[in-house]
Amino acid sequence: MKAIVLAAGYATRLYPLTKDTPKPLLEVAGTTILDFIVAKMEKVESLDEIIIVTNNKFAGHFEAWAKDADYSKKLTVVNDGSLTNDTRLGAIGDIQYVIDSLKVDDDLMIMAGDNLFDFELTDFADYFHDVDTDCITAYEESDLNQQKRAGIVELTDDQLVQSFEEKPDQPKSPYAVPAFYLYKKETLPLFKTYLNEGNNPDAPGHFIPYLLDKKPVHAFLFEGKRYDIGTVESYERVKKIFENK
């Protein structure tokens, strides 16, 4: 298994904090967001390489981080060549860029580089191996306003995904989907097909309904908190939560 950490955004909503520092390298309670994610990935036995895909502006920052890091997994930084927010490849474009650049032919864990979370990735990987299908993650979101800002899935009793809708006006279920995915290696060619058909290259959730038309997908239901850092206010709030922990 390989892992891709999506870190090629410019995080303009967090300016000035991210004007010269990539969001995944912001610190929370004495460690970076990226270190928090990679420490969780370290525990997944089948995972042998962690790939950070970034842009030309911040590639040097991640290369310096990787040089100083002390992890057992291989760390690889991939520069997608983009220079500005307007010319970015988008998350799905970056996934395909990594697959092409590194000739990835393994099961693939994909995660956003700006999330902190309580659950263990080892449990997610175990579930993926047990059900033997592509897997997304989901959690029960009780706040209707938050549901309307998320991707929402309908699930069967055995957690098979029936439908997915991004930011619905009328959510069909309480199950929200963050950007944590596990795809089987046989699925990877579908990313290129998806892009070649002119579909949206940006948010990684756009790939899910496309995949649902072709293959079964299960949802790993996790408990505990997950924190999305999108604004200065949310960053300050998350810092306080983790400092109190």
Rank of each mutant, 00 (worst) to 15 (best):
D94P: 00
Y97T: 12
V98H: 08
V98N: 11
I99C: 05
D100M: 02
L102W: 03
K103Y: 00
D105Y: 10
D106T: 13
M109G: 13
I110W: 03
I110K: 04
M111I: 15
G113N: 11
D114C: 14
D114M: 14
N115P: 05
L116T: 09
F117A: 12
D118M: 10
F119H: 14
E120F: 06
T122L: 09
D123W: 07
F124G: 03
A125G: 05
D126I: 07
D126H: 13
D126C: 05
Y127H: 12
F128P: 09
D130Y: 12
T133D: 10
D134S: 11
I136K: 08
A138G: 13
Y139E: 08
E140M: 13
E141Q: 15
E141V: 06
E141D: 08
S142E: 14
L144D: 14
N145I: 07
Q147V: 05
Q147Y: 03
K148Y: 09
A150S: 15
G151A: 13
G151D: 05
E154D: 15
L155E: 06
L155Y: 07
D157T: 08
D157E: 10
D157C: 03
D158V: 02
L160A: 09
L160R: 08
V161Y: 02
S163N: 07
F164L: 02
F164G: 00
E165V: 11
E166D: 07
E166H: 06
K167N: 06
K167A: 12
P168A: 02
P168I: 03
D169G: 11
Q170L: 14
Q170C: 06
K172Y: 00
S173Y: 09
S173T: 14
S173H: 12
Y175E: 05
A176R: 04
A176H: 04
A176Y: 05
V177L: 09
A179D: 12
A179F: 11
F180S: 09
F180L: 13
Y181A: 09
L182V: 12
L182I: 12
Y183I: 04
Y183P: 01
K184Q: 12
K184L: 06
K185S: 13
E186R: 06
E186M: 03
L188A: 00
L190D: 02
L190R: 05
F191R: 02
K192P: 00
T193C: 00
T193P: 00
L195W: 02
L195E: 02
N196P: 01
E197S: 10
G198K: 11
N199V: 00
N199Q: 01
N200G: 03
P204R: 04
